[in-house]
Simulated assay, not measured.
Amino acid sequence: MTIDPSSIPNFGGQPEPQPTGPEGPIVPDQDLVKQLLDQMELKYVVDDEGDLAAPWEQFRTYFMFRGEEEQQIFSVRTFYDRPHAIELKPKLLEAIDDWNRRTLWPKAYTHTHDDGTVRLIGEASMLVGTGVSLEHFVSSTVSWIRASIEFDKWLIEQLGLEAEVDDAKPDDEA
């Protein structure tokens, strides 16, 4: 099974071309996700556990398949690397509750590390073990990736972190 590059949604308001691929449902696998990431020109690695991960500057997005056969779930999970002080957790929770009410994905939550820092995680999942259409899988995965990027931008704006982000850039990028 292959993905037609013209089938990758552009979200630019133009009608979307129809993907060419198998008729009927498919059961996606890691090779299909690799192909999609290649066509989106996104770099990725396979981690020690065998999961695909696409690294960005401030976060990593994992593409994972979990479960057996008909119960298999495909999950796109983004780990945001920016550490937040534990004292900011109430403000973070308020912000991500607002995000979760307003959007479908990724659903965001916090994780408090042993050192007291709080980091955010975003996640979207789909049952794929019984089969899904290729176009649904592609459009959902692309949407989830783009929403993960937008969440990071949104959070920076909500928490007033623009100056912090600008200060972290090398002089030639600022």
Results as ranks from 00 to 15, higher is better:
residue 1 M to I: 04
residue 5 P to G: 10
residue 9 P to C: 01
residue 10 N to T: 11
residue 11 F to K: 04
residue 11 F to E: 09
residue 12 G to R: 05
residue 13 G to S: 10
residue 13 G to V: 07
residue 16 E to F: 08
residue 18 Q to G: 14
residue 24 G to L: 04
residue 25 P to D: 11
residue 28 P to H: 05
residue 28 P to M: 10
residue 37 L to M: 01
residue 38 D to V: 03
residue 39 Q to I: 05
residue 39 Q to V: 05
residue 40 M to F: 06
residue 42 L to H: 07
residue 43 K to F: 08
residue 44 Y to F: 07
residue 44 Y to D: 04
residue 49 E to M: 15
residue 49 E to L: 11
residue 52 L to S: 00
residue 53 A to W: 11
residue 53 A to H: 08
residue 53 A to S: 09
residue 54 A to P: 00
residue 54 A to I: 09
residue 56 W to P: 00
residue 57 E to T: 14
residue 58 Q to F: 10
residue 59 F to I: 05
residue 63 F to G: 00
residue 63 F to I: 13
residue 65 F to L: 01
residue 66 R to S: 07
residue 72 Q to M: 12
residue 74 F to I: 02
residue 74 F to T: 01
residue 77 R to G: 00
residue 77 R to D: 00
residue 80 Y to N: 00
residue 80 Y to G: 00
residue 83 P to M: 11
residue 85 A to E: 11
residue 87 E to S: 06
residue 87 E to Q: 15
residue 88 L to E: 06
residue 92 L to S: 02
residue 95 A to L: 15
residue 98 D to N: 07
residue 100 N to V: 12
residue 101 R to H: 10
residue 105 W to F: 10
residue 106 P to C: 04
residue 106 P to K: 02
residue 108 A to T: 12
residue 115 D to P: 02
residue 117 T to P: 01
residue 119 R to K: 10
residue 120 L to H: 04
residue 123 E to Q: 15
residue 125 S to Q: 13
residue 126 M to V: 06
residue 126 M to N: 05
residue 132 V to G: 02
residue 133 S to G: 10
residue 134 L to H: 04
residue 135 E to G: 03
residue 136 H to P: 00
residue 136 H to Y: 13
residue 136 H to C: 03
residue 138 V to L: 07
residue 140 S to N: 11
residue 140 S to G: 08
residue 140 S to V: 14
residue 145 I to D: 02
residue 146 R to E: 13
residue 147 A to E: 14
residue 149 I to C: 02
residue 150 E to P: 09
residue 151 F to R: 01
residue 151 F to V: 00
residue 152 D to L: 10
residue 156 I to E: 06
residue 157 E to V: 07
residue 159 L to M: 13
residue 159 L to Q: 09
residue 165 V to E: 14
residue 165 V to C: 10
residue 167 D to V: 09
residue 172 D to I: 06
residue 173 E to Q: 02
